[in-house]
C-alpha cells in the first residue's frame, strides 16, 4: 500500500445554486482509486454519484454547480489548482468517461468512425486515413461485428448495446489510465448488460487501467469491482473491499439496500425495504441524515453527525459513517 493512488479525492464538496438556497449535492466525500483497480460507487438516485464524477471530470454544469471545497489529486497533480488548460488536456488523454445514455452522447449527424477517429485527429494529430484505421481497430476491440463495414454508419443505425460499445471505444481511444463509467448499462437489457460488463472487465484487465463504475444496481458490479463506495444524501457512508462490504455491511443503509433486492434463488420472502424516502437535500435531518429511516437510530444519531471511520473488528480498510457500526455488523436484530 506504499504506492500512491492514481486518483485521490479528499473532502470533496459540490454545491448547486437553486431557488431554495444552496444544495450540497456532494458533502465532504473522500476516496482513492488505486492504479488498475475497479471502484464501484453505489447509491440511490440523487445520492451524488454523478455529481462526484462530474467534479472529477471537470464537467459540472456551470454556473449552477461549483466545487465548494476539497482536493482532487490525480497522479500527484492537484486538478483544482493546476493550469486549467493542462488539466483539460489531461482529462482528455488520461481520464475518460462513459455516460449512461449512449444515444444522446453521440452526435447523430456524424458517422461513428469519424467520431471515434476525431479523438486521434484532435489529440494525436493523426491523418484522416490513420484515424479511420484506428477507429476500425477500436470497434473490433469492443466487439462490434464487421467493424470495417460499419465504420461509416450513423449512430442511429446501431442498437443501444452497440452504441454503448462505441462510446466505450471512444473513451478507450487514447488509452486512458482512468475510466469513469456512469451507469454504463442502466439503459440496456440484462443480456446486453452482461456483455458490456464483461467487456469493461476484460478491457480493464488488458489495458491495466483503473475503473470507476457508478451504478445504483448492487448486483451488476459485484463480479467486477474490487472495492465499493456507498453514497447517501451526498455523503460517503461506507467503503471497503466489495466482498467485505456486501457480506459484513456496517451501515444500516447498506444493509437496507441489500435487503430490498429480490433474490433469484432462495425463498420468496416478503421484502424488507428501507422505510421512508431519501431526504430533501435542502432540509437534511439533524445528526446522521439517515436517522429518520434507520432502524438502529438512537438519540445520539439525531444529535451527532457520524464520520466515516474504521469499524472495530473489521479490516482497517472497511469504514462506515455510523455510530453503531459494530452493532450493525454483529447483525443485531432491528429494534423497531
Amino acid at each position: 500500500m506504499t504506492e500512491s493512488p492514481l486518483l485521490s479525492v479528499r473532502d470533496l464538496s459540490v454545491r448547486f445554486r437553486t431557488g431554495g438556497g444552496h444544495v450540497r449535492a456532494v458533502d465532504g466525500v473522500s476516496f482513492d482509486v488505486r492504479r488498475g483497480e475497479t471502484l464501484a460507487v453505489l447509491g440511490e438516485s440523487g445520492s451524488g454519484k454523478s455529481v462526484t464524477a462530474q467534479a472529477v471530470m471537470g464537467i459540472l454544469p456551470k454556473p449552477a454547480g461549483e466545487i465548494a471545497g476539497g482536493t482532487i489529486v490525480y497522479d500527484g497533480r492537484d486538478l483544482l489548482a493546476e493550469d486549467p488548460n493542462r488539466v483539460r488536456r489531461l482529462r482528455g488523454d488520461e481520464i475518460a468517461m462513459v455516460f449512461q445514455d449512449p444515444l444522446s452522447s453521440l452526435n447523430p449527424v456524424f458517422r461513428v468512425g469519424w467520431q471515434i477517429g476525431e479523438m486521434f485527429r484532435r489529440h494525436r494529430g493523426a491523418s484522416r486515413r490513420a484515424a479511420r484505421a484506428a477507429a476500425v481497430e477500436l470497434m473490433e476491440r469492443v466487439g462490434i461485428p464487421a467493424a470495417a463495414r460499419r465504420v461509416d454508419d450513423f449512430p442511429h443505425q446501431f442498437s443501444g448495446g452497440m452504441r454503448q460499445r462505441i462510446m466505450i471505444a471512444m473513451a478507450l481511444a487514447l488509452r486512458p489510465r482512468l475510466l469513469i463509467a456512469d451507469e454504463p448499462t442502466t439503459a440496456l437489457d440484462v443480456t446486453v448488460q452482461a456483455q458490456i460488463m464483461r467487456l469493461l472487465a476484460d478491457l480493464r484487465r488488458e489495458e491495466g487501467m483503473a475503473l470507476v463504475l457508478i451504478t445504483h444496481d448492487l448486483g451488476v458490479v459485484a463480479d467486477v469491482a474490487d472495492r465499493a463506495l456507498l453514497m447517501y444524501a451526498g455523503r460517503a457512508v461506507e467503503t471497503g473491499g466489495i466482498r467485505e462490504v456486501y457480506d459484513h455491511a456496517a451501515h444500516p443503509y447498506t444493509r437496507g439496500l441489500m435487503a430490498s433486492i429480490p433474490d433469484l434463488d432462495g425463498p420468496r420472502e416478503r421484502l424488507t425495504p428501507v422505510r421512508g424516502a431519501p431526504p430533501n437535500l435542502l432540509a437534511l435531518p439533524s445528526g446522521c441524515s439517515f436517522h429518520p429511516r434507520c432502524p438502529h437510530a438512537t438519540d445520539r444519531c439525531r444529535a451527532d453527525d457520524p464520520v466515516l471511520r474504521a469499524v472495530d473488528g473489521r479490516p482497517a480498510e472497511h469504514r462506515a459513517a455510523c455510530h453503531h457500526a459494530e452493532e450493525v455488523v454483529a447483525g443485531e436484530r432491528e429494534r423497531v
Partner: peptide, 11 residues
C-alpha cells in the same frame, strides 16, 4: 433507470 432525483418543490 431510477427515478430522476426526488423532486423537491423547494428546489
Amino acid at each position: 433507470r431510477p427515478a430522476a432525483p426526488v423532486p423537491e418543490p423547494a428546489v
